[in-house]
């Protein structure tokens, strides 16, 4: 019932998007228009998907037909900077957050999960975009040095979290094992000027060997993190790494929350979200100030920037921003727009 409702609700925006992109030629999907995702035929030889680290996202699917695609993720346990020169032992899908995977409904995804030979732990992957047991977790349980493969058909358009589900799950997620997979609807999302990938996650730390921080189980159980971060590092989107846009452009943020525990009050200071794909699904809300992103959930937010300046990306549960690191920035350049914003009176 739910699925039908989703597909039905999708029909209108889909058709609009499809019409728009038609002029760009090569509308290879027209033959399958109106077909349920489960009945869409993924044709041709499998192709290896290009994945991207945050804050970048791969190119839109546009109006291509469903394909067979291959996704390769490597799980590794690495030391990297978490904040202010301090190192932490992260567990990763390629990096933290994991690589952004972008497919379309009807795609058949062959997912290879390789666990690095020098890993201490076994790892696996549960993709929330999967219809099937454990989201792939059981099928991909990989010992150190081993690779596991499973295949799924993307049926439900939306933005989904993936994460490691190996025991103990809160530790694996708490060490950074999460990322996002976007399943675009037929015809693709409406083109925008800028797209970025942001993932929130909190870190529970204690001093480990050689001054490297590591996971603290007691703090995790108390849900009392030391760090709440975007893209796995304090300042990942500050200074030279600020996100960028120009006045008049529309920005789309793919925002996920790995958790493992906290729910995010996602907000961009000085902007209003024109569109929010609530919970990463199909329902679009408008004129939203702050959107809630649960642990293991996501949202797509879109907004047009009218005025130049620096815009703070925050978790509006504000102690996390002021004291625990949840802060990023978008630098918007261009002409002032006094009609929209100016200092002083009329």
């Amino acid at each position: 019932m739910t699925k039908k409702a989703i597909l039905f609700g999708l029909a209108l925006p889909l058709m609009l998007a499809a019409c728009k992109s038609k002029t760009e030629g090569g509308d290879t999907s027209s033959s399958q228009k109106g077909t349920a995702a489960i009945d869409m035929v993924a044709e041709g030889e499998p192709i290896k998907l290009e994945l991207t680290p945050a804050p970048n996202v791969p190119a839109p699917v546009g109006n291509r037909a469903p394909k067979k695609v291959i996704v390769h993720l490597l799980t590794e346990e690495i030391e990297a900077e978490i904040a202010d020169g301090q190192k932490y032992t992260f567990w990763t899908f390629n990096q933290v957050p994991g690589s952004f995977i972008r497919v379309r409904e009807g795609d058949e995804v062959e997912l290879h999960l390789e666990n690095a030979s020098n890993s201490v732990m076994p790892h696996n992957i549960d993709l929330h975009a999967v219809n099937g047991p454990g989201g792939g977790a059981e099928a991909t349980f990989a010992a150190p040095g081993k690779e596991a493969v499973f295949t799924f058909k993307a049926l439900n358009p939306g933005l989904y979290v993936y994460h490691c589900a190996a025991p103990p799950v809160p530790m694996h997620i708490g060490n950074g094992m999460y990322g996002l997979i976007l399943v675009e609807p037929e015809g693709g999302l409406k083109p925008v000027d800028r797209e970025y990938y942001i993932m929130q996650g909190e870190f529970y730390t204690k001093a480990g060997a050689a001054g490297v921080l590591e996971f603290d189980n007691d703090k995790a159980m108390a849900e009392n993190p030391d760090y709440v971060l975007f893209n796995g590092k304090k300042g990942s989107m500050l200074g030279a790494n600020m996100l960028e846009a120009k006045v008049g452009e529309t920005i789309r943020l793919f925002v996920g929350n790995g958790g493992p525990n906290l729910v995010s009050s996602f907000h961009v200071i000085g902007e209003i979200f024109d569109n929010v794909y609530l919970e990463g699904g199909t329902t679009v809300s408008h004129n939203v100030q702050t959107t809630i992103i649960p642990a293991g959930g996501a949202a797509i937010v879109e907004f047009k920037v009218e005025v130049p300046g620096e815009y703070n990306i925050v978790d509006h549960s504000l102690s996390r921003t002021f004291n625990k690191g949840a802060l990023g920035k978008i630098k918007v350049t261009g002409e002032e727009n006094p009609k929209v914003f100016k200092k002083g009176g009329h």
């Binding site: 020098n118 201490v120 732990m121 010992a143 150190p144």
Partner: peptide
């Protein structure tokens, strides 16, 4: 959890 990920012919760097 680790043991569950094993098969009898597996050879692993820290096992």
């Amino acid at each position: 959890g680790f043991r569950t990920s094993l098969k009898a012919n597996y050879t692993i760097s820290n096992l």
